[in-house]
Design a binder for these strands. Sequence first.
DNA 1: AGGAAAGTACGATCGCGGTCAAACTTTGAT
DNA 2: ATCAAAGTTTGACCGCGATCGTACTTTCCT
Lengths: 104, 104
Amino acid sequence: MVGMERTPSHPEVSEFDLQKVLEALVDPVRRSIVTQLDAAGADIACGAFDLSVSKSTATHHFKVLREAGLIRQHYAGTSRMNTLRRAEMDEVFPGLLDALTATR
Amino acid sequence: MVGMERTPSHPEVSEFDLQKVLEALVDPVRRSIVTQLDAAGADIACGAFDLSVSKSTATHHFKVLREAGLIRQHYAGTSRMNTLRRAEMDEVFPGLLDALTATR
DNA sequence: AGGAAAGTACGATCGCGGTCAAACTTTGAT
DNA sequence: ATCAAAGTTTGACCGCGATCGTACTTTCCT
């Protein structure tokens, strides 16, 4: 389709909301995504994560993370790359991601 | 009633579970309870909180917080006192409560 | 003893979120 | 031109948790 916008919307730092962030991080699948991104220290394509849900469910989880501001997404060919917005999160909620990605 | 145990069960530090803690803290009412306890720096009776739900709902929220290990409860007359288990939480999940009770 | 105060227990309701399958779109490779 | 790969969208289902009112229990006060 012509004009199909493939760049999804991302919230700005000023729009980060603790409630939304917590709702995103309370789900184990989504927390696993964040943990894998943090451990890798690099971008990861949606399909390259180790997840235990279907593709459509995974799409849903990535959307929730993106709309909460935890990840940034951009296309690279047919793949969608995911970037952890670490510095921005740390700026608004210092210590939060550290506490949740701690190895225990 | 005779033999009615009025001391509820509290998890030990070794039983603290991140998933349960997050499920407890994701609810705004429960997070408000934790925030009020943290700000007061003292025990607060169930009825002395500023909450926007019914008594029975409040009881439910206190139970969830207690079973996650976030608060300790004990009776004082007809009142039930609530204590934030700050040090124990900090020991197991360093930085988590700091991040969530930060004034923003 | 009687009543009020402070919570708890129990059902019932109800909306939201996680899940999947199926159909579709876009891009890249042959 | 086809075909495969990678995600998305839509719709449906379903279970869980937040909520409330009512009835009940325990303790304190007079």
